[in-house]
Design a protein around this nucleic acid. Structure first.
Lengths: 202, 202
DNA sequence: GTCTATACACCGATAGAC
DNA sequence: GTCTATCGGTGTATAGAC
């Protein structure tokens, strides 16, 4: 977490260049894959020389972890925001199905196989995200008793898993079973979050 | 599909060395990630010189696609095998939950973002695998009417999605919701494939 | 803060000998 | 079939000047 390993002189965390480099890293990851995520590429995108990347970051590993942190905290903010709206489950589902950049996610997944630091951050994110969803689901189910007999944590996993697979496959161009699954989710949402918020029997 | 692009002299497809190189590629991918999947690494594992890799394969892309093909056809064989057993749904589920090497899969997923050739093969595999599962599910549901009102293709997607997420998260060390979801699957399987095969009301 | 310059390793792919 | 040798390029990371 803290920074100390090299004797090298280091630039300030959070500065404009620091952030620009993380943005460049994210774009590279999204557009070119993790094989192309190099200090030279980042410098090129930002418009500076390669050396500067190592002024702001100790290693490429640090770049990767910080890039993930940026994406993850952005996503957690969105999740919190959606969870506080009138029909949180629908909002959360729409968020997951719409915002999931499945390419980017799969790059991070592969990276996390090899980076201990990233793996720890990914685990923390999953648990935090899942907790937000679980809480929203539990509240919604309490409002409509008997709607579903699956435990909220299972339902959260189910939804996350489906959203990930559906977006991933859609990006590939596969859609076997998507209609049926989306209809199923729609059916559940209609039951547990009917049109007029609060009115469970319209 | 056919081979022609370089003037270089090429070795026979399917020979012992050819296969050994694909095995080495798979092992590298699994153990070190796609960043380490290089011709030199493969040669080292097989115990030959780097040049020989380019005698058997035109490009690294070809190595990647062939490696995938090997894994995919192995998996399809297993799926076919399971689908022909007494309780196919349980066998298929157990296969997916046990055999899924989530690390390897995530490497291939990331690779497929950048390789057109691999992407096409991945799509073909998903569709073929899903068809096997769908057929088995449809047959099982026909045997136990009223057990489930989700369409077989949706159920196949649901199961694939869950198996992937559960194995992936388990590999990371996360298990939120896994108990609930596994219980749900177990409940469904008990209903649709009771202990004594063929006896639907024990 | 940003640069030039540089060490050193590894990459894909090829030519051509044996 | 398998090898030595090699090209041109890219990678991480550092030293030290301005």
């Amino acid at each position: 977490m803290t920074r100390a390993a090299t004797n090298r002189r280091m630039g300030p965390v959070g500065s404009a260049n620091w952030q620009a480099m993380l943005d460049a890293a994210e774009a590279t990851l999204r557009e070119e894959g993790y094989g192309a995520l190099t200090s030279r590429r980042i410098a090129e995108r930002v418009g500076v020389k390669q050396r500067l990347v190592y002024y702001y970051f100790q290693t490429m590993e640090e770049v990767i972890v910080e890039t993930w942190r940026g994406c993850a905290s952005r996503e957690l903010d969105r999740l919190h925001d959606m969870a506080s709206r009138p029909r949180p489950l629908r909002e959360l589902w729409d968020l997951c199905i719409a915002t999931h950049d499945s390419r980017l996610i799969s790059e991070f997944m592969a990276l996390s196989n090899r980076s201990e630091g990233l793996r720890a951050e990914v685990i923390a994110f999953i648990e935090e995200a899942r907790a937000i969803q679980e809480e929203a689901i539990a509240a919604a189910l309490a409002r409509t008793p008997g709607a579903c007999d699956i435990a909220p944590d299972g339902l959260a996993l189910l939804a996350s898993s489906l959203a990930l697979s559906v977006t991933r496959e859609a990006a590939l161009g596969v859609d076997v079973g998507h209609g049926a699954v989306l209809a199923l989710v729609e059916h559940f949402l209609a039951q547990v979050e009917p049109e007029a918020p609060g009115a469970n029997a319209p």
